[in-house]
Amino acid sequence: MSASAPTAVISDLRDRIARLEGGNARERAVLPFGIAAIDRVLPGGGLALGALHEVAGGGNGAIDGAAAALFAAGIAARTHGKVLWCVTRPDLFAPAIAQAGLAPDRVIYVEAGDETSLLACFEEGLRHPGLGAVVAEVARLSMTASRRLQLAAETSGAIGIAVRRWRRQTEAADFGQPTASITRWRVSVLPSSPLPVPGVGRARWQLELIRCRAGKSADFEVEASDDKGRIALPSNVVHGSPQKEIGRRRASS
Score class of each variant (00 low, 15 high):
A112S: 14
A112V: 07
A112D: 07
G113I: 09
S117E: 15
L118G: 02
C121V: 14
F122S: 03
E123I: 08
E123M: 06
E124L: 11
G125T: 08
L126E: 04
L126M: 13
H128F: 12
H128C: 15
P129A: 14
L131F: 14
L131I: 12
G132E: 12
G132C: 10
G132H: 01
V134G: 01
V135W: 01
A136S: 10
E137S: 13
V138I: 13
A139D: 14
A139N: 12
R140Q: 12
L141I: 07
T144E: 14
T144F: 06
T144R: 04
S146Q: 05
R148N: 05
L149C: 12
Q150I: 01
L151R: 04
A152K: 06
A152N: 04
A153N: 11
E154W: 10
E154K: 14
T155L: 14
S156G: 10
S156Q: 08
I159W: 01
I159R: 05
I161W: 00
A162Y: 00
V163S: 05
R164N: 03
R165C: 11
R165E: 11
R167Y: 02
R167H: 03
R168C: 04
T170M: 09
E171Q: 12
A172S: 15
G176Y: 05
G176N: 10
G176R: 06
Q177L: 15
Q177M: 10
P178T: 14
P178A: 13
T179W: 11
I182Q: 15
T183A: 10
R186L: 09
V187G: 00
S188H: 01
V189T: 10
S193I: 04
S193L: 08
P194Y: 07
P194W: 06
L195W: 00
P196C: 09
V197T: 10
V197C: 07
P198W: 13
P198F: 13
P198R: 15
G199R: 08
V200S: 11
G201M: 11
G201I: 07
R202P: 13
W205P: 05
Q206G: 09
Q206N: 13
Q206R: 15
L207D: 05
L207N: 07
E208Q: 07
L209G: 02
R211M: 00
R213Q: 07
A214N: 08
G215S: 07
S217H: 01
A218R: 02
D219Y: 00
D219Q: 03
E221M: 08
E221F: 01
E221Q: 10
E223M: 13
E223N: 01
D226Y: 04
D226N: 15
D227T: 08
G229P: 08
I231G: 08
S235F: 05
H239M: 11
H239V: 10
G240E: 11
S241T: 15
S241F: 06
Q243R: 04
